[in-house]
Design a protein around this nucleic acid. Structure first.
Lengths: 109, 109
DNA sequence: TATATTAATCGTAATATTGCAATGTATAAA
DNA sequence: TTTATACATTGCAATATTACGATTAATATA
């Protein structure tokens, strides 16, 4: 069917999947890395930094914004984006808990 | 279109995206969590544990195996799956480095 | 006001993903 | 050797994602 059966999973499982999904495209990884590197807000030169068309970047930014990982602020004709530090920290806790599960001493296979 | 322009991104960006993508579905999150919980290997009762059809689970397991995050071992008629601890650790390092970037003191927007 | 600049939105083509019924394959047990 | 069990594979329908040209909306500047 093309759509995940989210109703059979826990809220946490769905939340982890949603966060992971947004990181599941190199353009969004690159956008976030750039925002971290620049630290101070960045505007539409993401289009130059990354080699994708403006509507494509805009679309990726929207997904990051929808999940609350970045903020966008209109400044004149341009828009200033930056990491939403509070939400990033919350997301990080969720993901770390998932990634940091105790490993068995030896693999069974 | 419909496919990511991986060639314009770094190997690391693509690697992060690939790992994240596989975590981007709640069924695979649930499978991994179950494998961690059971610790000792698990076989096809993942189908009972999670509420999806056998071919669907098999497909998700294949993706996890392709990325090297789990191992599968044939034991008679059943197959025993478990976390690939070595690769899990490597993946974790890559993801932690991405998630753990230094946040600015204050958001700019 | 007219024009330029910046970015969001719309529409669409190409491709990927999800889920499952049906079927195939391999091993174990009778 | 037949039958049962456990998984993998195939094929397909429904939906999602990616990318971008064209357009729109909003603001700044001449």
């Amino acid at each position: 069917m093309g759509l995940a059966k989210t109703e059979i999973f826990t809220n946490l499982q769905n939340e982890i999947a949603l966060f992971a999904k947004v990181f599941g495209h190199p353009a969004r990884v690159a956008i976030l890395q750039h925002l971290f590197k620049i630290n101070t807000c960045i505007c539409g030169d993401l289009v130059n930094e990354i080699g994708l068309a403006q509507p494509t970047i805009s679309q990726h930014l929207k997904e990051l914004k929808t999940l609350g990982l970045i903020k966008g602020n209109v400044e004149g004709t341009s828009v200033c984006y930056c990491i939403n530090t509070e939400n990033w920290t919350k997301m990080k806790e969720v993901m770390l808990q998932f990634l940091d599960q105790d490993l068995p001493k030896t693999d069974c296979c």
